[in-house]
Nucleic acid binder design. Structure first.
Lengths: 143, 143
DNA sequence: ATTACACTTGCAGCATAATCGCATTTTCAT
DNA sequence: ATGAAAATGCGATTATGCTGCAAGTGTAAT
């Protein structure tokens, strides 16, 4: 119970300091994302909030608002559905890592130990401007 | 005109050797993809075929069929829309390259000179199984 | 060239993701 | 406590992508 209270207060503070109003829907949404290891789709978040009877449009808007305030990140991982995850705040490192999504089962994982390297000698100007990296393939579970 | 005839025959042969029937819709679809530098969405392909009055469901199915026969590739580049491109056949190299999509204007380009490298010492088993790489960011045109 | 039959197409409709308009309700600074 | 601004619920809307079915077409065998 203590953990829940902490999570509740953490979410409330997070939302308030982003300049948004701490409504039950927003707090619940953020708590769901906070409790997840990997990015969640809108549908997944919405499902977890069904007992609270929060409208799906509200969930969409709250996710969008939280993205705009840099509290969460919206990623497009290649199966044509947006996924959302909390942006971890660390002092200096930007919290940016490639995502891996299994083309078979759709499971998503965050890859912290992979970086891109350019092989050609031509220095592509695109390279400095990359904001998101997505890898698709087959996960261990799916053979 | 000669070029069109060649393109027509090339497409027909490509489809036939894949084990599919060379219908006008399929030939036209493949010709559109053949004439494009970057992957096209279903909507883009469909638009170019509008004067031929080919139903969008037919275009969808033909694109899907051609993907299944390994004539074209379907890529999910992160804006929640499938894109299709011809698979270039070269003797030994697999035709697989990362795609870059601009999050501002949506333009897509193929990156031939980029490869992934793992920085950590832990050898992730996921790494051998990656089938697609997508980079998102800001292109030169969009600042 | 004709024909038979599997393959393909067009049309309509459906499922889902994602947005939006608007009236009502809630939050929060005062 | 209260009012202005923000957020919500509900319904409608747009778009992508997919599917069932009847009618039409390509192709191999004759």
């Amino acid at each position: 119970m203590n953990k829940n209270v902490n999570s509740q207060e953490w979410a409330r503070e997070k939302i308030r300091s982003a300049g948004l109003r701490a409504t039950p829907a927003r707090i619940a949404t953020l708590k769901v994302l906070h409790g997840s290891e990997s990015p969640l789709t809108h549908a997944e978040v919405s499902d977890e909030l069904q007992n609270l009877e929060i409208d799906k449009a509200t969930v969409f808007r709250n996710l969008t608002d939280l993205v705009a305030k840099n509290v969460i990140r919206r990623s497009a991982l290649g199966d044509n559905v947006w996924r959302f995850e909390i942006i971890k705040e660390s002092a200096h490192e930007p919290d940016s890592h490639p995502h891996f999504i299994c083309v078979d089962c759709g499971s998503v994982s965050c890859m912290e130990d992979v970086e891109l390297k350019q092989t050609s000698t031509s220095t592509s100007p695109l390279f400095d401007r990359i904001t998101e990296i997505v890898l698709r393939g087959h996960c261990n579970e799916c053979e």
